[in-house]
Design a protein around this nucleic acid. Structure first.
Length: 579
DNA sequence: TACCCGCGCCAC
DNA sequence: AAACGTGGCGCGGGTA
């Protein structure tokens, strides 16, 4: 059973749907709930409810039969339901699904793929704090649509038709279910927030930087380092906050450097370098995750990150605000479970090479990862001599690295794991030819831009410079498609993992407790998840985390002989979880 | 004042 | 040792 949730639109246009109404203000249009069968045909009476009574109506239907809620944008509808204490089990996010189906090679012949760009290709609903800062619609392509174009019933039927007619409905069906579940999870995680102890964070900052300085002033530790830098450079004006000025100051002191990047400075022998590197480290901590960050992002002991499902072309999530996907290890000690609660932190071990082994059907690589660290398994097979080399080589193979240690490992890996290496090489060659590549479940890469295609044309019969530029661009796009298939399929695995985990957590404690009263997902980072749970359930959660990881592998790869082990830590503080 | 871009660095 | 994928973000320094 599906129920479409859509704004009521009157024919005279006096009520127009607003994708970003002021939540909770009472303004906004009525909402229609339309029951549908799997083919998209009505199978019950539609009901019109006021915005104020939407949550109650959803709650009632959820309790009665757990329908699959169909709406244009989870980021628009679900936060207000969550704020009212309503959790839904299943949903279809039409906007996220549309983005996948429009581009997928599996649905290239569908009416949906052929349709003109519309509001369905537009951006997600924005969180409240950004609404005044951005225009409502900001399109990369196509005209600005009228809001009335967002006809969720029609779009749902278009999507069902595209999926049914695709060569492999089960793959796309799984992908869209996982993507939509991810949208629910993202909203729930933002609602619950990551437990964040501002006092502990302040202690960490004070230990590293000194006490919080007055606004605009440097912390004491940075001031002390600055004095040392200036002394060692014999330059009382040296300014490490400006790369341009710093390069000049370094050159005046006889230090030849092209940039002020830490890795370049690290190779220079000069007494100013050590305090300079320390200064840069502290400066980064201060500006990115210092006291201002706490003031901006921590409220009520929680960091309410905005996760953006589908925000990355490969299908990875992006984040918006607070740098949620780049929380530095230096402040993870401030992530502390509530009293009597635990953090269950789980990390998929060597996820991407395992994904590659499964994608390519490379039995030797699958064997290398069986019941052990995959990189150690590669060493044990005799292909390379150390774990570091195995890791470097595999990352290079998946990223398209050619130089250094990584490039030197490639021939050995290609010999030991020919199927795996050929798989990524094929993806790279396809990209270089301008072709599209797809993940296991059917998310396809974007076509190269017109500028890229023009460049390739120009390289064919143009000057030597044009030819070289074309080759450089071709190889660059090849590195993108090479990585796309692995990173994108790893993202699918992670979505399936999370979706399965979410379901099992709600079974464990009951759906009523699943928002914040019981074990719930609190954080996600590409191949790592965190559950905030009452302490007495932590062992159960840890077991479920492992089981759902294995299930995700079976869902996507069937009985492929590749394991997907996870390292699980039950801790009070995020920094106790080993990386 | 508002915007834009390059730099550098954080995460995976 | 630094070149090889996906991102976000704050800053300095420039422009409109």
């Amino acid at each position: 059973m599906y129920v479409v949730v859509s704004p009521a639109v009157s024919l005279n246009g006096s009520e127009s749907p607003d994708r970003n109404p002021d939540q909770g203000s009472g303004r906004g249009v009525s909402v229609v709930l339309t029951p549908l069968d799997a083919a998209g045909l009505p199978n019950g009476p539609a009901e019109t409810v006021s915005p104020e009574s939407l949550a109650t109506a959803v709650q009632e239907r959820e309790a009665a039969g757990r329908p699959r809620w169909v709406w244009d944008d989870t980021a628009h509808w679900y936060p207000m339901l969550l704020a009212a204490g309503v959790r839904v089990e299943r949903a279809v996010d039409l906007r996220l699904s549309h983005a996948i189906l429009r581009r997928s090679a599996l649905t290239s012949g569908s009416a949906l793929a052929a349709s003109a760009p519309s509001a369905w290709d537009g951006p997600r609903a924005l969180p409240a704090r950004q609404r005044q800062e951005t225009t409502l619609f900001d399109f990369d392509e196509g005209p600005v649509p009228s809001a009335g174009e967002l006809d969720s019933l029609a779009e749902f039927r278009l999507q069902r038709a595209a999926i049914t007619a695709s060569g492999d409905p089960s793959r796309l069906g799984l992908l869209l279910a996982a993507e939509s579940a991810g949208a629910l999870i993202a909203a729930e995680m933002q609602f619950a927030g990551l437990p964040w102890n501002a006092r502990r964070h302040d202690e960490l900052l004070t230990r590293a930087l000194g006490p919080r300085p007055a606004p605009g002033a440097r912390p004491a530790e940075m001031e002390a380092l600055l004095a040392r830098i200036r002394h060692e450079l014999s330059d009382p004006e040296a300014n490490p906050d400006s790369p341009q000025e710093l390069v000049k100051a370094l050159r005046r002191a006889g230090i030849q450097t092209e940039s002020t990047r830490s890795w370049e400075l690290r190779n220079i022998k000069h007494p100013a370098i050590e305090p300079l590197l320390a200064y840069k480290k502290l400066s980064r901590l201060l500006t990115a995750n210092g006291w201002n960050w706490i003031d901006t992002w921590v409220t009520g002991g929680r960091f309410h990150a905005t996760f953006v499902p589908g925000g990355v072309v490969t299908g990875r999530w992006a984040a918006d605000g607070g740098g949620a996907l780049q929380l530095p290890h230096a402040v993870r000690g401030a992530v502390i479970a509530d009293d009597g609660w635990k953090l269950v932190v789980a990390d998929a071990a060597q996820l991407e090479p395992r994904i590659l082994a499964a994608l390519s059907g490379d039995r030797a690589m699958a064997a290398a990862g069986r019941d052990q660290d995959l990189y150690n398994g590669i060493v044990a097979s005799g292909a390379v001599d150390t774990r570091a080399h195995a890791k470097l080589g595999m990352l290079g193979a998946m990223y398209g690295g050619t130089s250094g240690e990584s490039g030197r490992m490639l021939p050995r890996l290609a010999k030991a794991y020919p199927h795996a290496i050929r798989f990524v090489e094929d993806a790279a060659r396809a990209g270089e030819r301008g072709e599209i590549v797809s993940t296991r479940l059917g998310r396809s890469s974007p076509a190269p831009s017109d500028a890229w295609l023009d460049g390739q044309d120009a390289g064919g019969d143009g000057s030597e410079a044009a030819r070289r530029r074309a080759q450089t661009e071709a190889r660059s796009w090849g590195r993108f498609t090479r990585n796309f298939v692995v990173q994108g399929t790893a993202a699918e695995w992670a979505l399936c993992w999370m979706a399965g985990l979410r379901g099992r957590l709600s079974e464990l404690a009951g759906p009523a407790a699943a928002l914040t009263d019981g074990p719930h997902l609190a954080f996600f980072l590409h191949d790592e998840i965190m559950v905030h749970t009452p302490g007495e359930l932590a062992d159960d959660v840890a077991r479920i985390v492992r089981e759902t990881a294995a299930e995700a592998g079976r869902l996507i790869f069937g009985d492929a002989p590749v394991q997907f082990p996870v390292t699980v830590a039950i801790v009070d503080s995020y920094d106790e979880a080993k990386d």
